[in-house]
Amino acid sequence: MALTASLGHSAFLQLSTSFYGDTSPSSSISTTFPGNQSFSRKQFVVFARKMSGLEEARRIKRERELQVVKKDRKGPPLRRGKVSPRLPVPDDILKPPYVGSDILPEMGTEYQIHDSEGIAKMRAAGELAARVLNFAGTLVRPSVTTNEIDKAVHQMIIDAGAYPSPLGYGGFPKSVCTSVNECMCHGIPDSRQLQNGDIINIDVTVYLNGYHGDTSKTFFCGDVSDAIKNLVKVTEECLEKGIAVCKDGTPFKKIGKRISEHAEKYGYGVVERFVGHGVGTVFHCEPYIYHHRNDEGGCMVEGQTFTIEPILSMGSTDCITWPDNWTTVTTDGSPAAQFEHTILITRTGAEILTTC
Score class of each variant (00 low, 15 high):
residue 317 T to W: 00
residue 76 P to A: 11
residue 46 V to E: 13
residue 87 L to W: 04
residue 34 P to Q: 13
residue 267 G to H: 06
residue 61 K to T: 14
residue 123 R to T: 12
residue 210 G to M: 01
residue 309 E to D: 10
residue 12 F to H: 10
residue 103 I to Q: 13
residue 99 V to N: 02
residue 269 G to P: 02
residue 355 T to Y: 11
residue 323 P to W: 05
residue 139 L to H: 03
residue 67 Q to G: 15
residue 114 H to Q: 08
residue 154 H to T: 07
residue 340 E to A: 14
residue 241 K to D: 07
residue 113 I to G: 07
residue 139 L to N: 05
residue 22 D to M: 07
residue 100 G to P: 09
residue 171 G to W: 07
residue 260 S to P: 05
residue 332 D to H: 03
residue 282 V to M: 08
residue 260 S to R: 08
residue 183 C to E: 15
residue 18 S to M: 09
residue 356 C to P: 10
residue 32 T to K: 13
residue 115 D to A: 09
residue 173 P to D: 02
residue 203 D to Q: 07
residue 305 T to D: 03
residue 69 V to F: 08
residue 348 T to S: 14
residue 187 G to E: 06
residue 286 E to C: 10
residue 173 P to T: 03
residue 220 F to M: 11
residue 308 I to Y: 00
residue 46 V to T: 14
residue 146 T to P: 05
residue 130 A to F: 06
residue 217 K to A: 08
residue 97 P to W: 09
residue 45 V to H: 13
residue 252 F to M: 06
residue 348 T to E: 15
residue 160 A to D: 01
residue 354 T to F: 04
residue 177 C to Y: 09
residue 155 Q to E: 13
residue 83 V to S: 04
residue 169 Y to F: 13
residue 243 I to Y: 09
residue 329 V to N: 04
residue 42 K to T: 14
residue 120 A to S: 12
residue 290 Y to N: 06
residue 101 S to D: 14
residue 9 H to D: 14
residue 332 D to G: 05
residue 283 F to E: 04
residue 197 G to D: 00
residue 201 N to M: 14
residue 50 K to F: 09
residue 67 Q to I: 08
residue 144 V to K: 08
residue 95 K to M: 07
residue 314 M to G: 15
residue 191 S to K: 00
residue 88 P to C: 03
residue 28 S to K: 15
